[in-house]
Computed example of a mutant assay.
Amino acid sequence: MSPFDDAAIAARLAELGLQMPPPPPPSANYVGAVQEGKLLFVSGQGPVFPGGYHHGKVGAEVSIEQAYEHARVTTLNLLSVMRQELGSLSRVRRIVKILGMVNAAPDFVAHPLVINGCSDLLVSLFGEHGRHARSAVGMGSLPGQITVEIELIAAID
C-alpha cells in the first residue's frame, strides 16, 4: 500500500481528529493544480474551514499557535485539491517543495513556526515521503486578509 493511499491518509487524519474537506474552487482566473511531466504544482490555498476563512495579522491579533492550526487547515485543502486533480493520492511519490506565506505584522519574525503546521502534518501523514524543501516568508497582506497561504509541488507517478 502506498504511503499516499487515500484510505490510509483518511485513517491517519481521523486519528489526528482531522478530515479532508472538499476542494475549494479557485477564487479567480486560475486552476487548482497543473500537472507537468512527473510534477504536480498546486496553487496557493488558504485556511478555508466550513464557516469561511481564518483572517488577521499573525503576531498582532492572531497568535503563532492559532496560525499553526490555520496552516494545518490549509494543508488539508492542498491535499484535497491534489486528490481531485490526480483521482487518488496514491499517485504521489513524495512532497517536493512548499512555499508558505504568512500575513504577518511588520515586526513578526517566526514565520517558520507557523508554516511548521503544514510541514509537521505532511510528515505525520507521509513519513519520509512528506519531507520537503520549503520557504516560509512574511507578507504585508494576503488575499482577503487570510492568515496563511501555502502552495505545494509534488512528484507523481
Results as ranks from 00 to 15, higher is better:
N77A: 12
R91E: 10
S124T: 15
Q66L: 12
V48Y: 11
Q66G: 07
L76P: 00
D107M: 12
F126K: 01
V73M: 14
S90H: 07
P112I: 01
G87P: 03
N116T: 10
N103A: 05
E61W: 10
G52M: 09
G87N: 07
A110M: 08
S80P: 01
I115G: 00
E65C: 05
R91M: 02
N116K: 15
A110K: 07
P112W: 07
R83H: 07
V96W: 08
V81P: 05
V102E: 02
P47F: 10
R93W: 09
G46I: 13
E85N: 14
G59R: 01
R131P: 02
Y53E: 11
R83N: 02
L113K: 15
G127L: 07
Y68N: 12
V48L: 11
V62F: 08
M82C: 15
P47M: 10
S63H: 06
G52K: 09
D120C: 02
S119G: 07
V58L: 10
A133Y: 13
G59L: 03
I95Q: 00
E65H: 12
I64L: 12
S119C: 09
H54D: 14
L122H: 00
S80H: 01
I98M: 12
S124N: 15
H54K: 14
V114P: 07
Q45T: 05
H129E: 12
H55V: 13
V109D: 11
T75S: 13
L78K: 08
Q84H: 15
G100S: 09
P50G: 09
